[in-house]
Design a protein around this nucleic acid. Structure first.
Length: 510
RNA sequence: GGCGCUAUCGUCUAGGGGUUAGGACGGGUGAUUCUCAGUCACUAAACCGGGGUUCGAAUCCCCGUAGCGCUGCCA
């Protein structure tokens, strides 16, 4: 099946030679938020470029005017920067190969389409959308074994007829003349050689009737003009690659090297989406994840450095990254493991670095106005909760009782620790805590231990009710550091309140 | 339907003609502690199926099956 005419020698297609600094690009379409799959593709491009000392270009593929969303652009930039994936060339960064928005390069694509037209490698197609829709419907009905797609109706149009229609101002598109049954092969750096029969490919559209190029044309022209050496993209593009090879061939250009990244799946094995597993990078930020954790986790989806290393710095990832170690298999996004990894990074973060994010989370929680005024206090609280949290948002959510009295008591814990027998103990605590000096963790612990001994009860009989009284829940930081941070006044107030709660419950016969 | 890609514990993966098939998350058990988290120790858990090649296959080849992708004037 491989005969003459095959495009280049497999594996030796590109001008790029081993050792040259590669040029790669991430080319998102601004049609919505940046999802984690796209972010992972960007990450791999970034790691690859950095590992080999090459350049990482960001290019915006905004050729679909119907689906264009202006807000998407800012979201893409913000997401990439948040993850620490700064591009060397592209919007905001500049560069010699710009502009980096395809919508600003339309003249370029048109010129190249004209070139193909003049060379007889492409033709104008005047078929209406209705005709094409009918054609598709018929093919669907007939369940054609093969050869589905455009029927090449306009390919055989006499030059004179074509000129006439053009002169008459009839709207048209430009299609590539795909050669008849011929092997079109390329080498995928991750999957090996892949061969398609050109008979499977229809005469794809290069230029749309609105004058904008299709992805296929724009992507090939730009990759060539921007000197892209390696195209690292999602594996949904595998089936389009032979089309791109044919376009390169029509131009007489050497195609770049290709590597198709495996997709990221939701936990149920389906496609990742808003509904199934957030999907948007910024949603993960909002959910309390750290960028370095998400980045590290994403890197391990489809790539493994070998050995047992998992938690790695960006620099370590750059050093270890190679395409040979990228997996061809789709990977499921396991949010539980992400949480674990986030927890690991959270422990490594300084309280100072966490403060802005946690404060922002607290600010959304309707606390008393003055509650967040004391920065030193905020840091103390963060320090107490950091080690028992996995997400930034968890720190904020579980520490609310440091800013306002508990709004009730955990029911199950109440049954266990707020028994009538606790009353005399609380009374004793109230008495001693009122005069305890200093009101500091070690001294407080001594006080509790001593009282427990005097009353011949386990320290837990004192500790658990106190914890529930001051926090409303049965878990949290060490009790004594908590009491110290809360301060005498607050502790006494909450203990009294809990005492009243227990007494009242007792009267109800509970 | 056609074409293509993929297939190791539940999940992410290492390995790759001869291994007790390794690690991580999650699960289970125990220890520690005022709770939770953590930490430590232990533990259950996998080579999709069938043929072939071979002294030997999870590993190489073929077929099947399943999942996914493409089959647009979307990207």
């Amino acid at each position: 099946m491989t005969r003459q005419g095959i495009c280049g020698k497999i594996g030796e297609m590109a001008d790029w030679k081993e050792g040259m600094p590669p040029v790669v690009r991430f080319a998102p379409s601004p049609t919505g938020y940046l999802h984690v799959g796209g972010a992972r593709t960007a990450l791999f491009n970034f790691l690859f470029a950095r590992h080999h000392g090459g350049r990482f270009i960001l290019r915006i593929e905004d050729t679909d005017r119907k689906r264009y969303q202006p807000e998407a652009l800012a979201e893409i930039f913000t997401s990439l920067k948040w993850l620490g994936l700064q591009w060397d060339e592209g919007p905001e960064a500049g560069g010699d190969a710009g502009p980096y928005f395809q919508s600003q390069r339309t003249a370029l694509y048109r010129r190249h389409a004209e070139e193909l037209l003049a060379a007889g490698r492409a033709y104008r197609c005047f078929c209406s959308e209705e005709r094409l829709a009918n054609l598709r419907a018929e093919q669907e009905k007939a369940k054609m074994a093969q050869g589905s797609g455009y029927d090449r109706h306009c390919r055989s149009l006499a030059p004179g007829d074509s000129e006439k229609l053009l002169a008459a101002g009839k709207s048209y598109i430009v299609r590539l003349k795909v050669p008849d049954a011929r092997a079109v092969a390329f080498h995928d750096l991750i999957r090996g050689d892949i061969t398609y029969d050109s008979a499977q490919l229809d005469d794809l559209v290069l230029l749309k009737s609105d004058g904008f190029p299709t992805y296929h044309l724009a992507n090939v022209v730009d990759d060539y003009l921007m000197g892209i050496s390696h195209v690292l993209r999602g594996d949904e593009w595998i089936a389009s690659t032979p089309k791109h090879i044919l376009i390169y061939e029509a131009f007489g250009w050497a195609p770049p090297l290709f590597a198709h990244m495996p997709v990221i799946l939701a936990a149920d094995g389906g496609k990742l989406s808003k509904r199934r597993g957030a999907a948007s990078v910024l949603d993960y930020q909002r959910a309390g994840f750290l960028p370095e954790a998400l980045r590290n986790f994403l890197a391990l989806l489809g790539w493994a450095p070998g050995g047992d290393r998992e938690v790695m710095t960006l620099e370590e990832m750059i050093r270890a990254f190679t395409l040979e170690r990228v997996q061809a298999k789709a990977a499921v996004f396991d949010e539980t493991k992400l949480e674990w990894m986030n927890g690991v990074y959270l422990q490594g973060r300084s309280v100072e670095s966490l403060l802005p994010d946690v404060r922002a989370a607290w600010e959304k929680m309707e606390l008393p106005a003055a509650a967040l005024a004391d920065e030193a206090f905020l840091k103390k609280v963060i320090a107490m909760f950091r080690e028992r949290s996995r997400k930034v948002s968890e720190i904020a959510a579980s520490s609310l009782y440091f800013f306002r009295d508990p709004q009730g008591y955990d029911e199950q814990a109440g049954r266990k620790h707020f028994k009538a027998e606790a009353l005399p103990l609380i009374d004793a605590l109230l008495e001693r805590l009122a005069i305890q000096e200093p009101f500091a963790a070690p001294a407080l612990e001594a006080l509790y231990r001593k009282l427990a001994e005097e009353r011949t009860v386990g320290a837990g009989k004192l500790i658990h009710p106190t914890r529930l009284a001051v926090s409303g829940v049965s878990f949290g930081p060490g009790l004594f550091e908590m009491l110290e941070a809360l301060g005498r006044e607050t502790v006494l107030r909450r203990l009294r309140q809990a005492r009243g709660h227990i007494a009242a419950r007792g009267q109800d016969g509970n």
